[in-house]
Design a protein around this nucleic acid. Sequence first.
DNA 1: TATGAATGAGTCTTCATTCAT
DNA 2: AATGAATGAAGACTCATTCAT
Lengths: 215, 215, 215, 215
Amino acid sequence: MAPKSASARVPAPRWRRRAEARPEEILEAALAEFTAKGFEAARMEDIAKAAGLSKAAIYLYFPSKMALLEALIEAKVSPLAHQAATLAAAGQADPLTALRMLSTAIAALMADPKVVAVPRLVIGVCGRFPEIAEYYRVQVVAKARGALEQLIEAGVAGGKIRKVDAAAAVRAFIGPLLFEAMWTHVLKGETALNDPRKLIEQQFDVLLNGLEPRA
Amino acid sequence: MAPKSASARVPAPRWRRRAEARPEEILEAALAEFTAKGFEAARMEDIAKAAGLSKAAIYLYFPSKMALLEALIEAKVSPLAHQAATLAAAGQADPLTALRMLSTAIAALMADPKVVAVPRLVIGVCGRFPEIAEYYRVQVVAKARGALEQLIEAGVAGGKIRKVDAAAAVRAFIGPLLFEAMWTHVLKGETALNDPRKLIEQQFDVLLNGLEPRA
Amino acid sequence: MAPKSASARVPAPRWRRRAEARPEEILEAALAEFTAKGFEAARMEDIAKAAGLSKAAIYLYFPSKMALLEALIEAKVSPLAHQAATLAAAGQADPLTALRMLSTAIAALMADPKVVAVPRLVIGVCGRFPEIAEYYRVQVVAKARGALEQLIEAGVAGGKIRKVDAAAAVRAFIGPLLFEAMWTHVLKGETALNDPRKLIEQQFDVLLNGLEPRA
Amino acid sequence: MAPKSASARVPAPRWRRRAEARPEEILEAALAEFTAKGFEAARMEDIAKAAGLSKAAIYLYFPSKMALLEALIEAKVSPLAHQAATLAAAGQADPLTALRMLSTAIAALMADPKVVAVPRLVIGVCGRFPEIAEYYRVQVVAKARGALEQLIEAGVAGGKIRKVDAAAAVRAFIGPLLFEAMWTHVLKGETALNDPRKLIEQQFDVLLNGLEPRA
DNA sequence: TATGAATGAGTCTTCATTCAT
DNA sequence: AATGAATGAAGACTCATTCAT
């Protein structure tokens, strides 16, 4: 996560880093606190303490609490957007296998609370910050959905996948993972995400073959 | 929202204070505010205003903001728990049909923001109130999961459903709806929940027959 | 001030609340609450409950919390002032015996928390209500002091009491009782007021004979 | 009230915030407000203003209003406890003289409203905070009583004091001072504490020689 | 007479944010 | 770059008091 050296093409965001490692540490701490207590309930002082700084020092890096939230969300977008972009291209040849591998990877990621933290945060916050909802919808979820739909459609076109509604298929693919992630991280239920391979195997048994008894 | 006419003889004068209706009205307003702003950011004063009361008056009915939240959650639990209980029994005979009908009903419900509001609230809040997470996990979600799993297993036992992992099937069944609900209400995306029948038909096409091309 | 004349002709029906008794009951309750919690911390609602009324009903009898306090204080003053007046006359003949009897009576009274309650209240309250301090000083304490000093001086004049400073003698006479009353009721210490005769005997042994060893 | 010049070399600039002095200043202000208005009626804002701070700043030093009260009480206890302890030892040789000197000192102290303030506070507050009553009873008053009784008993044993009940003697010794202090500070009466020497002389004339005419 | 309902004015306490060094 | 100190603005909660019946 080395600071990508200013990169003059992209106009430096308002919360531009002034030191090397600090911003990362602060964001880390902020994410932890936001996740644990929610955006409103999280206190700058606790974030500062967790980051090993004084409360005032945070303001050297981020102009406000809100900026922290924005930085946090944005920081997770580029990776995701990028992955989504490459995904569609990469898996065209063998969509089902691609989906299976992808699923397993996602399931494994979702076992990590930190990965789920930002989406959870967005859920909790988008009520009063609609811009964030929109940003997340457009920049993250819509992109991911699009990429997956393309994959499905490619599979259908290539005869590898039965002719189904792509959107429905994407929901069938992502929904169960979302559900298990919520169960695990929100409700603190016993998770099936610990064994991603097994989870995906069971899920794909249903997903690929359906519930109907075969002749 | 009309005062349910305590006695038809004397039409309750408009200025009559409807003490009995108050708790409901307050909860209504609280749900709206909590949903819009989140639990922490919601102000008692706004809730009061929305309920047509003074701030202090709320405390005649609920001892604290937290109590409001709890009442809100609990108020939605008994209905759910009850439905879940009847569900399992009702659908034993023809599980697939039961599932399909149930899905459509749920999808229709989920189009209503108010129905989704409490779960959303729980998601946003359970980080700092683990008791609520536990309550919801045990009293609501675990029960619903259990009822659905029974349904699946009954179907498998009766040969109406292919032999699949029940938990995976439940995830495959609920996950997509959850996903669409989040997309709709959290991210304010264009919803497919408006036409529940079509949505479920597409979803069940995938769910029942799978993605694999049939021979 | 009190609605007098219970008018015994019509026996108040059992269910009928005796309106004329109300002020007394309320004052009783108010004294109890004020004593237990202090004037500021006492809540009208609790007073009402203790008096078996609704909060609003109190305002039919007393226009404000402050009025309650004033009524309370005034209700205890006339008796005291009266007693003080008679005292001086009564004991002129044999001042020492009068003092001894008086002391025992006072000590016995002071064992009763209700008797000490109003003075305690005054102590707690006169910081912010100087009129009350003045009222109490002039109407109660100064009068009592005066009466006692007269008694002492009469004794000195009649040769029954050694020539001492009257004020000092009064302090020596009242102080110990005040001290024990505070210890008992304020600090909840084990009291010597239970056995007033013994207490006064010991106190008078000191008071009359002094500490100096007699030749 | 001058900041005690932490170091004489650099005269603390007037605008320098004297963080170390703050707690003392706050307690000072709190005592003043509590005394003037009573614990409940005193407002944090006024205390803050009197201490030259913002309301919120007080919470940097004391976590609550209650803590302020406790600190205040405790701050006066150690001195007293200590003095009481040394007292008994110091005066053993000549108890009567010790008592006389002690009395004069106490009388002089009691002329200062600030010295009487905390006991007054305790009186007003112990109704609803019984722990404070107990603390004060055990840590302050019982200790002082004990020390004085020892002194008396030593005097009796050494033949310097007539054989009297020690507790009664202590009451006879403290009571008058207590009485005069209340008269002065609670009731705002004209005080005799201004001339402690004279007051004690008169009081000791009674205390030592008694009221009975000597043969 | 009596009260359930309601409220305006206030209080303690918290916290994001700034300031002086 | 960093911080200890400070604060303004806000929010939950309370309570004496009033009102409509």
